[in-house]
Amino acid sequence: MAVIVERPKLSILEKFYFPAIMKGLRITLGHAIRILRRKKKVTMQYPEEKWDNNLPEHYRGAPALVTDEHGRERCVSCQLCEFICPPRAITIIPEEIPPEDQWSKVEKRPREFEIDMIRCIYCGMCEEVCPEQAIFLRKDYAISGYTRDEMVHNKKKLYEIGGVREGLVNKWNTLK
């Protein structure tokens, strides 16, 4: 069913347009004067000024893997992030943890964990979906490289960015 939206009835003055145009010009001029008189500052001069120290808590930068306070890699390669990732930036190759390993009771870990930062859209779905609190979006935002390969973060690089994160739920350590 088509919805018919009634056009507003314009008064004669409004039909004349001129007052509205003048009003518009006054508004834009007002903004211009305000910024010319340095009453307001919006833009930051990026490479010289940075807001790294003022990044909000919820800022979403490069995704990275974290280890816990015992040095265990938290990722168990359940591949949920790979599944949820909208641009399919994540590739995981899982492997079984060998029995002689300290954390063999966890059974599974990623052999390779790659995030293609050319594809990544910083949506944070991977962090949201992760059942192990293993992937977090850090505050790194200036990701650059000379080649496409350089833009693919491998497992080593991801742990380097992520570092250690303490105070997370540690179900493997206590119950297993």
Partner: peptide
Amino acid sequence: RVSAVIQERV
């Protein structure tokens, strides 16, 4: 520049 000033940019 003018558009920037009007839109409160640089």
